[in-house]
Amino acid sequence: MTPRLFWLVYSTETRKLMTYRVDFWITAVLNFVVSITVPYFLWTAVFESAGMATVAGYTLHEMVLYYCLAVLLGRVVRGSDQLRDISTDIYEGSLSRYLLYPAGYLPFKYAQHLANLLPSVLQLALLGPAIAGVIGLPASVAISWGSIFLALAAVAIGNALYYLMSFTLQTVAFWADNIWSLIVMMRIAASLLGGLLIPLSCFPEWAQAVLAWTPFPCLYHLPVNALLGKSTFAQAAAGLATSLAWCVLFFGAARLIWRRGTLQYTGVGI
């Protein structure tokens, strides 16, 4: 696929998205408020009953900020909910048209996926400063250019990794018609083991050591903690290197499964 085509697919998809204004604002505001309210009340209760200033290395103020950032950055990492697109294309036979084009399916879909990030990036740009203004930054948190750079790198790699994981998983649709449960399982695993549901420092030491070698921390834990300055440069760099290795692994797996899967593809109907 040429860079020009990649850009055209990206911009076409973006234009399409911007026509759905209501969806943009519902996701931006309502969804965010709902995502933050539950953890806020939960952690306030935890801190009150524990009577401690910090839990798992976070003050209550830091914890609230952690969740706000995890939700906002996490959206950028995950992209929109078009992650079922590939399995739907296989299941419904829409893949056929892409197999006819002299352009790769994976880059085509990745360009569309990147375009789908734009609303999430805009929401981050709008809500991020607004939240910092409303709840303020704890004294312990000093956001620097270095931390912003590390967080952005983590978001970019996390995004590619999440996409490749999802792509690989969805190609199972070549063999099994309905893979919705697999996608849900992946989301739950990513939320729990990536640090969206609870910060990874809540896990026992040994579990954290194991998780460091998995693809999940780069999805939520690494970008948020890099931005808040909770990860050292060495920790962040090690996390990014591990995630890059996972990207390469999933890319190889996706290509291999794709090649085998298209041999099975029936295009629906006889």
């Binding site: 040429t2 020009r4 085509l5 055209l8 697919v9 076409t12 084009y101 002299p102 352009a103």
Partner: peptide, 8 residues
């Protein structure tokens, strides 16, 4: 336009 680019 998209197809123009796809088929060069």
């Amino acid at each position: 336009l998209l197809l123009r680019e796809i088929y060069q």
